[in-house]
């Protein structure tokens, strides 16, 4: 059926909204091949219909709609993946978790690097080059110190005022919020509400 592969891609995208499955390069290639075939048929028929063969026009139009639809599906598929990747950037920082990284295509990864770079350029240029890390202070602060539990062995962690904390698995610490926000996002610490 015409346009079936493209629809498949969209369906898969819809099913996996909270994860990033491996890029279906084969399906993309198939859709592109279908488009190429349709385009060639159309060209042939258009040349033929110059000599008043009007009944060909309907077929040409149908093929053209399928072409447009396939293009739209492919763009949506790729674009949605980029947007998900962007969301991950804000959740995990500039280093991607390894399972996501392995599901990316080479050019998607390049896009991710470029996005990181643009973001870093912007963040360091705020306030006449003073720079603001927008990844910090993601939540409105409720209290200055928060209680955190360590989820994995991390080792020594030096806070801004120079004290050293040893973060071992399952240890509980009372730390300044601003100090450990990043570690919480990386999944090293867990915020426990009291």
């Amino acid at each position: 059926m015409l346009g079936e592969k493209a629809l498949e891609l969209i369906k898969e995208m819809k099913r996996s909204q909270d994860s990033l499955p491996i890029l279906k390069e084969d399906s993309i290639k198939q859709v592109l091949e279908e488009m190429k075939a349709l385009f060639e048929e159309n060209q042939r028929d258009v040349t033929a219909s110059v000599n008043e063969e009007l009944q060909l026009h309907t077929t040409v139009q149908l093929r053209h709609s399928v072409l447009l639809r396939n293009k739209r599906c492919l763009l949506t598929y790729l674009f949605t993946r980029l947007m998900y990747l962007k969301k991950l950037r804000w959740a995990f920082g500039s280093v991607l978790p390894s399972d996501v990284r392995s599901n990316l295509s080479e050019s998607e990864y390049h896009w991710f690097i470029a996005y990181n770079k643009a973001l870093a350029t912007y963040m360091s240029s705020i306030g006449d080059g003073m720079g603001v890390d927008l990844q910090q202070h993601l939540q409105p602060p409720k209290s200055f110190y928060i209680q955190v539990r360590c989820l994995q062995d991390f080792g020594d962690f030096e806070t801004a005022d120079g004290t050293k904390v040893v973060l071992t698995k399952n240890s509980v610490h009372l730390m300044q919020r601003s100090q450990c926000e990043k570690l919480i996002h990386q999944g090293i610490l867990e915020h426990i509400t009291i």
Binding site: L78, L82, S107
Partner: peptide, 10 residues
């Protein structure tokens, strides 16, 4: 970046 990516890929 986005336009470039989409152009290069498909």
């Amino acid at each position: 970046n986005i336009e470039g990516y989409l152009h290069d890929t498909i």
